[in-house]
């Protein structure tokens, strides 16, 4: 039973990282206003949202399972406040930090029609902090850290995000054909 909880905790964590990687890449694609492959423009946005919410669900299981796992010995305080844990406080703390950021981004995103685009966008910038923190947490915590396949997953995710961010920074990212888009403040 304990083994199962431990495995569940690790598994959901890794899949959540993959989900957030997809989310971030598709978020950048959504912002560009381009359609991606067979997905329409609304499809890109829809999959971005679905991947994000799936990731949030996985993280709930990830944290929940480790909280009930006697082996992990995770205290409630470690879930809420970073860098206080007994076991690998730095790497675990990164996870807690990522969890806090995720909570803020998720709540604001769900309430985006109420808070308006300015707040939504400002808070959404946090995802560029959230993802690297979560990635480091995945790399440094737990049994799988250092294993070949885990390194492979982490490297693939890193490459995908680096490529997407690189695309975003290109001058051509903001141009859709010869269209000039409105100037929007953050």
């Amino acid at each position: 039973m304990n083994e199962a909880l431990w495995a569940l905790g690790r598994g959901t964590g890794i899949v959540a990282l993959v989900m957030f990687t997809i989310t971030l890449v598709l978020g950048i694609a959504t912002h560009s206003g381009r359609s991606l492959g067979g997905l329409g423009r609304f499809g890109v946005a829809d999959v971005h949202r679905t991947a994000a919410l799936t990731g949030v669900g996985l993280i709930a299981v990830h944290v929940g399972s480790l909280l009930f796992d006697p082996f992990a010995q995770l205290r409630l305080v470690d879930v809420l406040f970073p860098f206080l844990g007994a076991y690998r406080p730095f790497w675990l703390g990164l996870g807690t930090l990522a969890l806090d950021l995720l909570a803020v981004v998720t709540v604001v995103s769900l309430l985006r029609h109420r808070v308006g685009p300015r707040v939504f966008r400002a808070v959404h910038w946090l995802t560029y902090v959230l993802w690297p923190v979560a990635w480091l947490h995945a790399l440094g915590t737990g049994t799988d850290a250092g294993s070949v396949w885990m390194t492979g997953v982490a490297a693939t995710c890193f490459a995908a995000v680096t490529a997407a961010v690189g695309w975003r920074l290109l001058p051509s990212y903001g141009e859709r054909g010869r269209t000039r888009t409105p100037r929007k403040s953050l």
């Binding site: 959504t30 329409g40 423009r41 609304f42 946005a45 685009p117 888009t181 409105p182 929007k184």
Partner: peptide
């Protein structure tokens, strides 16, 4: 004042 011409609405 918000529209950026993403075009999702015209697809939906």
């Amino acid at each position: 004042t918000r529209c950026d011409g993403h075009g999702a609405c015209a697809e939906l």
